[in-house]
C-alpha cells in the first residue's frame, strides 16, 4: 500500500524531471523502473550490530528497515548483545543462510575479520558500519574517526592551554575497536603538537558508563587539578560526566557520538563541552545507498571496496539549535 504510493511518487518525479516537456498528458513508461524493483524484490539484508538498544544501532536499523520495506526486501537483525562471541556465531550462521548483504558493526578490528572474508567468498556482500574490521569488505560506511579524534583533541587543547594544569585524561571505549584506534590516532596527531598538554590517564571504559564513572572518579582523585577529559562515546561518557559532577570541579568533557537528542540536552546543560557527532540518520541513508549500489551493480562480492565517510557535526553551545539532533523516540512512530 505504502510502497506503491511511494513508487507512484517516484514515478511522478521521474516523469516530471526528464520527459515532462513532451508528455504531460499520458506520460511515458520508464523502462528501467521495473528492473529496478525486480533487483531488490525478495533480497535479504542482515544486520549484526554490537548490540541493539543503543541510539546508534536503533537509528541505523530503522532507516535500513524503511528502505527494505519499500523495496520489498527482508531485513533481519541478529542481536549479539555486546558479546563478540555471539556475534561471531551469528555471522557464522548467516554465512550458511546466505543473505544478500550483511551489515556489520564490528566490536573490534579482529574478531570478525576472518568471518567477513569467508562471507564475501561465499558471495555475500559485506557492508561495515562505523566500526571497521581489519578486513576491507565491499563497503565501509562510517565516521572519519581520525578527523573526529583530531577535532576532540583540538577542542580540549583550546580549553586547557596556558593558565591551566594542562592535564588531560583520555577515556577510550574499547582500544581494539575500529573507532578507538582511529580516534586515538587523531588525538595523537593533535596532542603531539602540544607539549604543554599532559595526558595523565588513557584508559578504557568498555562502552560502560558505570566503568567510565569508576575510571574517571579515580583519575580525578589522583589528579585533582585535571583540566579535561576526551571521551570516545557520549553514552559511556555520561558516567564520566557524573564523576566530574560529583567532584564539583570545572573539568571540560569533550565527547563524540551519534548526535542523538541526549547529546544536545547535555551540551545545553553544560555536561558536555562539545560533541563531535556523526549523524546517525545520514549514516543510515549512506548505508541504504550503498546497499542499493552493491545490489544493483550485480558485481561479485568483495570487488567493490568503497568507503563513505560521514560528515562531522559539531554540537556545542554555539551551534545548538532545535532540530540539530535527532530523537530516538521518534523512530518508533
Amino acid at each position: 500500500m505504502k510502497s506503491s504510493k511511494i513508487a507512484l511518487a517516484v514515478a511522478t518525479v521521474l516523469s516530471l524531471s526528464g520527459i515532462a516537456a513532451h508528455a504531460v498528458a499520458q506520460g511515458i513508461d520508464d523502462p528501467r523502473r521495473a528492473d529496478y524493483f525486480k533487483t531488490f524484490e525478495g533480497k535479504t539484508i542482515a544486520f549484526v550490530p554490537v548490540t541493539m538498544g543503543i541510539d546508534l544501532t536503533e537509528g541505523w536499523a530503522s532507516v535500513m528497515k524503511k528502505q527494505a520495506d519499500r523495496l520489498g526486501m527482508k531485513f533481519e537483525i541478529r542481536d549479539p548483545q555486546f558479546s563478540a562471541d555471539r556475534g561471531a556465531e551469528a555471522i557464522t550462521a548467516l554465512i550458511a543462510e546466505k543473505p544478500d548483504v550483511i551489515v556489520v558493526h564490528n566490536p573490534d578490528v579482529q574478531s570478525y575479520a576472518k568471518l567477513l572474508k569467508r562471507a564475501e567468498e561465499a558471495g555475500i556482500h559485506v557492508v561495515q558500519i562505523n566500526m571497521r574490521s581489519n578486513y576491507n569488505s565491499d563497503v565501509y560506511v562510517g565516521a572519519d574517526w581520525i578527523g573526529i579524534g583530531e577535532a576532540e583533541a583540538q577542542a580540549v587543547v583550546d580549553k586547557c592551554g596556558a593558565g591551566t594544569s594542562g592535564k588531560v585524561a583520555i577515556l577510550q571505549g574499547q582500544p581494539t575497536s575500529g573507532s578507538d584506534s582511529g580516534m586515538m590516532k587523531g588525538a595523537d596527531n593533535v596532542l603531539s603538537k602540544h607539549p604543554e598538554i599532559k595526558v595523565v590517564a588513557n584508559q578504557a571504559g568498555e562502552w560502560d558508563a558505570t566503568k567510565a564513572h569508576s575510571v574517571i572518579s579515580t583519575v580525578i582523585q589522583q589528579n585533582p587539578d585535571l583540566c579535561g577529559v576526551i571521551g570516545f562515546w557520549d553514552v559511556m561518557d555520561l558516567g564520566a560526566a557524573a564523576a566530574i559532577k560529583e567532584s564539583g570541579k570545572p573539568i571540560v568533557l569533550v565527547t563524540s557520538g551519534g548526535g542523538e537528542q541526549m547529546a544536545c540536552d547535555n551540551v545545553e546543560k553544560g555536561v558536555f563541552e562539545k560533541e563531535i557527532a556523526y549523524q546517525v540518520m545520514d549514516q543510515g541513508r549512506d548505508l541504504n545507498d550503498m546497499i542499493v549500489t552493491v545490489l544493483e551493480s550485480g558485481q561479485q562480492a568483495g570487488k567493490l571496496k568503497a568507503v563513505v565517510y560521514s560528515p562531522q557535526l559539531v554540537i556545542s553551545k554555539e551551534t545548538l539549535r532545535p532540530g540539530l539532533c535527532w530523537s530516538a523516540k521518534d523512530l518508533k512512530k
Binding site: G53, D208, A209, H213, G239
Partner: peptide
C-alpha cells in the same frame, strides 16, 4: 539518581 542514568549492561558485569 546519582549518575542521572541507568546502564542496564551492568547486569552482565
Amino acid at each position: 539518581t546519582a549518575v542521572a542514568s541507568m546502564n542496564t549492561a551492568v547486569v552482565n558485569s
